[in-house]
Simulated assay, not measured.
Amino acid sequence: MSDAAILCRFEAARSIVRDAADLAMAMRPPPGGPSGKQKSAQDWLTEADGAVEALISERIGALFPEDGFQGEEEGRTRTGRLRWVVDPIDGTSNYARGRSRWCVSLGLMDGDQPVAGIIQAPALHETYTAVRGHGAFLNGRPIKASPVTDTRSAMVEMGWSNKVPDGIYAAKMAAILELGAMPRSGGSGALALADVACGRLDGYLEMVINLWDVAAALVLLEETGARFSPFLRDGGLDRGITLLATAPGIATDLAVALAVPLD
């Protein structure tokens, strides 16, 4: 697909994501105990998930009816060479408690290749954007991956999932600590990957993560010089698999310690 066609869609999508983020903010539960339906351990579904996804799907469909669409909640509802992939509320466990670390994530794929992404975290007043070959930005300012080269000064996040046995999680976290890195866990895979892209984090590991969580973030990582494991090549288009994203200066050390190959 031509660069012009992708840029046209990207500009339209920015407005759509803003409206979707406004809707999510309006529906956000107040601070307190979790609100919504619990699908499994620590896995929540709120009314906003469906409403935000429906808004994006309808607006994208009206503007670009020839494009495919895939959402976390409804799956693939339309097919096309260009495909939009949305996580309406990434970080739902945070959102359901009225916390601020969550986002609306929308990626555009040309075939199997991510070409544009928008991650908007309205409660944090932050928007990440990227188009392949055109750089990546946070609130309009260029970003790049961290320059850190020593794991003893690195900050590394690991996502938690009920799909990962406790022993594996503990072993990977122990490997991070053995490197001298400072561990973190924030509850939003898309925002963690965006943090690697802008240098707030030096690494992020998620043992089981899905395409809708990463479609927008992969473009950010690529445009900012971060390195990451071959998620798309190794099956991430169809199922949840492992993803490691890292600052280039500690990529080898982190990949070896965590036993996750990079590209």
Rank of each mutant, 00 (worst) to 15 (best):
R141G: 09
G140W: 02
E53F: 04
T92L: 07
A12Q: 13
L205F: 05
K144T: 03
I118A: 00
Q70M: 15
F231G: 07
L258E: 06
R18G: 06
L7M: 13
T242Y: 07
L201M: 03
V260K: 03
A154E: 03
Q113K: 15
G71M: 06
A5G: 12
Y128F: 13
G249P: 02
A245L: 05
L55R: 10
G50D: 10
Q120R: 13
L220T: 00
S35I: 12
L45G: 03
K144S: 08
A5S: 14
A175E: 11
A26L: 12
G98A: 09
L124S: 05
R132C: 11
A247G: 01
P31H: 12
Y204L: 00
T224W: 00
V148M: 08
D234L: 13
M109F: 14
M27T: 06
I241L: 10
A51H: 11
G235P: 12
G186M: 10
V86A: 06
L23G: 06
A41M: 14
N139I: 00
E178F: 09
D90P: 01
N139K: 04
A226G: 04
L55C: 07
P88I: 03
A190G: 02
A257I: 09
L177P: 06
L193V: 01
P30K: 14
R14I: 11
Q113E: 15
R59K: 14
W84F: 11
L211M: 11
I168C: 10
A12N: 10
A255G: 12
D87N: 04
D67M: 09
Y95N: 06
A145D: 01
S146H: 01
V17I: 11
E157S: 15
R9A: 13
D110R: 07
A154P: 01
E53G: 06
G32L: 07
A197G: 00
Q42A: 15
S35M: 10
I143A: 04
I118N: 00
R152K: 14
T92K: 05
V104M: 04
I250Q: 01
D253K: 13
Y169G: 15
V52S: 07
Q120H: 15
K39R: 15
A247H: 00
G111M: 11
R99F: 13
P114R: 02
G140C: 05
G199C: 02
L258H: 04
L55A: 05
L23N: 09
M25H: 11
R101D: 08
L138H: 00
D202C: 02
R233A: 15
V208G: 03
A5E: 15
L201R: 02
A121P: 08
G167M: 11
T252K: 15
L63M: 13
K144G: 03
V104G: 01
R83W: 07
T79W: 11
L218R: 04
A255M: 09
R28S: 10
D49F: 12
A51M: 12
E222A: 13
G159L: 04
P65R: 07
V85Q: 03
L179T: 04
L232W: 02
S188W: 00
S35H: 13
E53W: 05
R200Q: 03
